[in-house]
Structure formats: C-alpha cells, structure tokens
Design a protein around this nucleic acid. Structure first.
Lengths: 288, 288
DNA sequence: CGAATTTATGTAAATTATTTTCTTGTTGAT
DNA sequence: ATCAACAAGAAAATAATTTACATAAATTCG
C-alpha cells in the first residue's frame, strides 16, 4: 500500500483548480482534513461535495472514507502549501524541505523500481562465490561501502573499492561465479565502465545500480535503474542518495531471505562478538 | 493524542460481551476494521450498528468515524514497526516494507528532532576552523564519511575517521575553534566517548548525533538525539540509517545556508573540475 | 476566430451510513 | 418474585455520501 500523500504531491500538476484547492487544505491542515466530513472539507475548499469525491477517486481511492483512512495513515510530512520551496532559511523549513524531499524520492522509487531487475540481482548475489562492489565519488563510494557492509553479514565474501586502478586490477582477477556490482548516480563514470567491461569479459556477472540507459547501465547484465531529477539548488544535498540506499537495502534484504539458512550463523557470530566485547546489550542494531 | 488501541486494551474489562466481540475483531483484523463501515463491522461482530456506536463512545470518541480515523492512525503506527516479517518474501512486499519503514522513520524524525540542537550544531560547524567527524562500525563510519563528503564542499576543512586510535590521537591535537562530531547509533561506543572527552578537554566544541541520554550524547555540548526502535528481525537492514543521513543532510544544508557566501566558490570549483575532466554535463549532482 | 468537443463543476435526487429514540430482554440484588 | 440497572436490538430520523444529470468553462480543431 502506497502513501497517499506521497501520491498526491506527485500528482499535483494533473489536478484541476478546484482539486488543487482541496489538496492545499489537506497539506495545510492535516488534522482538519482527517477529521472533517466531506461537506466540511468541501465548504472549506469552496467546492461542492461531489468534487471532493472525484478528487478522492482520482487519487485511486474508491470512496471519500477510504481516502480519509489512507490520509490518517500517511506518514508523509509535506510542506506548507504556500511555501516557495528553495529559499527556506529557518531550521523548521529546512527540516521539512529535506525530509519531504527524501520521502518523495522514496515514494517515486516505489513507482519506478524494476522488480524483475531487483529479483535477478538478488538471486545472482545470493549464490555468488565472491561479490565486488565498485563506486567512486562522494556518493557512489559510500554506496559501495554500504553494499559491502550489508552483504558480509550474510556470509558472502565481499569486497568494495572506490579506487579506479584497484577496480580495474580487481576486475582482471574475477571468475565466472563472481558478481561485480557497479554503482553510479550519473551513469557516466567511464573508469567504472572500463572496469565493469573487463569483469564482464572474464565471465563475472555484472550488476549495476545506475541511471537507466546510461553508459554504466549498458555494461550490465542486470541494471537496477534509478533516475531522479535533482534539484537545481547547489547548496542542497542530493536526495538521490536516499533512493540508492533504499535500493541497496531492498537488494540486501532479498539476498538475506534467499540465503536465510546460510546467513543466520554469520549474523549470530557478529552479534555475539559485539555483545561480548562491548557491553552486553543485545537489543542494538548489528554494528554501530 | 492518545493511542486508541492502547486505550482499548486497557478498557477491555469494562466492556460488555458484545463490545468485547467488537474489540476482538479490531485486534484480530485491523485492516478490515479500518476499512469497514459501521454496518459491516457490526455484522461481522454479530451485533447491531448502535452497539458499535456505543462502543466508540465508550472509548472516548464522539462518533464512529472519529473512532475509525483514530484507529487508522494508531493501527498504522503499530503496523509500521511491527514485523510483517516472514511473510514478506516476495519482491513486491519487501520493496513496500522497506520503503514504508524508511518513510516512517523520516516521519518520526520530523516529530522528534530537536530544532535548537540542530541549529546550534550548524552554527558551530559553520564557523569552525576545522571539523572532525568520528564514527565506527558498519553504520556510523559511513555517517562520518558522509559528513565529510557534505562539509568539504562548503569550503570547510574537514576530516573523518573510523579508527579508534586515530580518533584518540586526532582528538589530542584539536584547538578551541575546532568542532568534533561524534556519531553513534547505539550511543555506547566507549572508545568514541574517550576520544570525544579528550577533544572536549582540549577546548574543542563537541557535537554528537546519537541516542539521547546515552554515554556518547553525554560527552557533547550539543547532542542531536536520534532514538528509533529497531525491528527485531536481524535479517532486515536497520532503518535508523535513514534518520541519521537525513539529520546529516539537514545539518549540512543549514551550514551551507549560514556559509552561503563562503560556500559558493568551492562548490563552483568542484563542479568546474568535474565538468572539465568528465564529460561536460552540467546537470549532474555534485560528485557521482 | 468561432464552432465543436472535451473537461470541470455544481445542483438536486437517490442512496447509503450513522445516530437517536424507544422498546425489550437480561442479570443480579433484595 | 420484583425491581433496578444495564445491554442490545428495531425502527425511525438524521446526516453523509454518491449518482445522475445539467451547465459552464476550457480547449481543440477547422
């Protein structure tokens, strides 16, 4: 089930004037919208009740009350309606802007993710002899590290690198049952492309998480496509990272499921080491 | 707003037989209860609609629809953190579970984030002579790297370390206008605590992003508290990471605003280097 | 530019959901 | 056994929501 307010914020342009007025009230005063009857909501938006019904239908709900329930469940933060987005300067606004954008990114990921690619990637990784994760630059090298961080726990032999020369050399040593994962937001990292091509030439299965149809994506047997417009404000951190991390989470979780029996023991050992050598609290996440 | 399901389980004894039957259905099948009309719910509990109305009133709601909204809110919060675990084995479900949880984490961050701490942290960082970011373990070392990745772009001298010995040695070299940022999900990283204490002793301003009231948090002049219950399923990646990254994004963005004039030039230079040495596409995020 | 068509929206009627009122039945104390 | 007090349903009243239809606005196309 998808978050209704996430959907709403994406569909905004497709709405008519009256419908946008309704949406405005919903973003502006969620407590009111959640508790109001269709008549009250219609009155406040200065539209007729049937318009509200139509509005709900357009968002994929079968009735107004279904819409209300979904609205009540929504975890979407959303910004005050009037706010012109990017000149937010006070703390409250920055917090709202960044969290809302992160949520929107996750929401749109939900719509665009290629489930088959995800599944193919997880299947290949789960039975790999060795997994290599390659990425460079401020963001993608973080992703490569993260992939290693997730996969080694599942008892997979994993190595990550953000160094082009190492990637190239490593790629020359792979064998047929290995998986090489290439990460790139832009999809234009030519050094990475070279390394992936080499790995592919030596028979490794190449998986990428990158922009669809990009240079990097073209090198892969399976590409998990992530394509999100970045804002223009250079001061604003790129929220694509949330999408990449979520994609990595999803793949890693699926690998964990596919390797369930193999993964339990390494996880148990890691936990036991941490608990023994730290301070015996068993309830913490695995690794700080 | 009180949690209606909590209220319900407390009031259980005070309910009549019919009302308990209604309660039973609500506990048993919340998706049904949340979507059903009063007639459907009454039919399933084999009671009459007025009995359902009375039931809602007894729980402090003014009407059935108010009850339903409250139920939707509280049921969903439970549902979000509760494990739909073992049955989430197909790709679609895993994707939804992970994205929903990530979104919920961001939502709850929005509710709990201490704006004053955020602002104080950003102010201190923005005018620091040098910024050190310390974190260890699979997750927190990633955060430390991320913090460096964000801050160096703003023309701040920044260094990060995930090595306890280095942290300790580095902490011995700090001076009064430096800022040291400690990162820890659990708040129990004793080696980090030691390094932060040392840095603090030499006059640096210590900021932490960690669990409120934890050992790590106690060392700081300013702690940005993040406390999110982790699921119990060891196979599932910890979604606290999204909260930490979002917090880092927020702080970094505020620093960027506070340093606006100082930050533009380094950003321009980074971009120009990337564009010159890669392939002239100006529309990409800063760094792959 | 203006007719034709589509789309958006409101009004009023029909339907459905919910609550109120009233009645009956049940339980348990005296 | 009788009376209170409570529980719960039936039917009626009310309120909310949707449907069907009509009209106005916007858009397309000649």
């Amino acid at each position: 089930m998808v978050d209704i307010l996430g959907t709403l914020s994406q569909e905004m342009d497709g709405l008519s004037r009256s419908e946008q007025r309704i949406a405005g009230i919903i973003f502006d005063d969620r407590p009111f919208a959640v508790n109001a009857s269709i008549i009250e909501l219609a009155a406040r938006a200065e539209v007729s009740p049937p318009t509200v019904t139509r509005f709900c239908r357009r968002l994929g709900c079968q009735s107004f009350s279904e819409f209300k329930v979904r609205l009540a469940q929504s975890a979407f933060i959303g910004q005050r309606y009037e706010e012109p987005q990017s000149n937010a300067t006070n703390v409250q606004e920055v917090v709202e802007t960044i969290l809302t954008r992160a949520q929107s990114v996750l929401h749109s990921l939900h719509d665009h993710l290629d489930m088959d690619a995800i599944d193919a990637a997880a299947t290949a990784i789960a039975k790999a002899d060795m997994v290599y994760a390659f990425g460079s630059g401020g963001n993608s090298s973080l992703f490569a590290g993260e992939l290693q961080n997730r996969l080694f726990r599942l008892g997979l032999r994993t190595s990550s690198s953000n160094d082009h020369s190492m990637q190239l050399m490593t790629a020359s040593t792979v064998s047929a049952n290995d998986v090489v994962i290439g990460l790139s937001i832009s999809g234009r990292n030519r050094e990475l492309v070279r390394a992936l091509d080499v790995a592919s030439g030596y028979g490794a299965k190449v998986i990428t998480i990158s922009k669809p149809n990009s240079l990097v994506a073209e090198t892969a047997a399976t590409n998990i496509g992530i394509d999100l417009a970045e804002g223009v404000d250079v001061l604003r951190p790129s929220s694509a990272r949330f999408a990449f991390l979520a994609a990595i989470d999803i793949v890693a979780h699926l690998v964990a499921i596919k390797r369930k029996d193999l993964a339990i023991e390494p996880l148990r050992r890691i936990k036991s080491q941490l608990v023994t050598h730290r301070d015996g609290d068993d309830s913490q996440p695995l690794g700080d």
